[in-house]
């Protein structure tokens, strides 16, 4: 049974090749897509139900049933040391898909010179395991299923 992965935020679906970071664009971490968020404060929600295996102010990794999904809020945002991000959960917490995890303001991050496009990655999956449910360029809501991983 395929696992549905939800968009963590409202925004526009983008192909990973549009992400200006080869680590994501070349799917080094795994396949997926990206969400280009609105330039206003948003709350990033859990893309799947599971355990928060990895949590940083700028990124969350959630594990469930052998799948791992990474949400990386913007690019190179590790450099901000958490400034501009508010964590609503802790590493090790169990979350339900759609539950709020991180608050951030893409407008402020972008004003600071960093890209805000947000990769949504099926960690260490094969490209053939992914079925994209929403075409590139389409606007989506937070919590809307955007791809399935088999």
């Amino acid at each position: 049974m395929a696992l549905q992965v939800l968009s963590p935020m409202p925004g526009r679906v983008a192909n990973l090749s549009e992400v200006p970071d080869p680590m994501f664009a070349e799917a080094m971490l795994g396949p997926g897509l990206a969400i280009d968020p609105p330039r206003e404060p948003v709350t990033a929600v859990a893309p799947i139900s599971g355990t928060i295996a990895s949590l940083f102010p700028h990124a969350m990794g959630i594990e469930a049933e052998g799948y791992s999904i990474l949400v990386h809020l913007g690019l190179e945002t590790v450099k901000l040391n958490g400034e501009g991000f508010t964590l609503l959960k802790a590493k090790g917490d169990t979350v339900t898909a759609g539950e709020p995890v991180i608050q951030w303001d893409p407008a402020a991050i972008e004003a600071g010179g960093l890209p805000v496009i947000t990769p949504l990655i099926a960690i260490q999956a094969e490209a053939s395991q992914i079925t994209q449910l929403v075409a590139d360029g389409t606007p989506v809501e937070a919590g809307q299923p955007v791809f399935e991983v088999a």
Binding site: S54, L55, E63, S68, L70
Partner: peptide, 10 residues
């Protein structure tokens, strides 16, 4: 060999 495991070390 687990990216999420290694990143999870922080």
């Amino acid at each position: 060999k687990s990216i999420l495991g290694v990143m999870g070390l922080g």
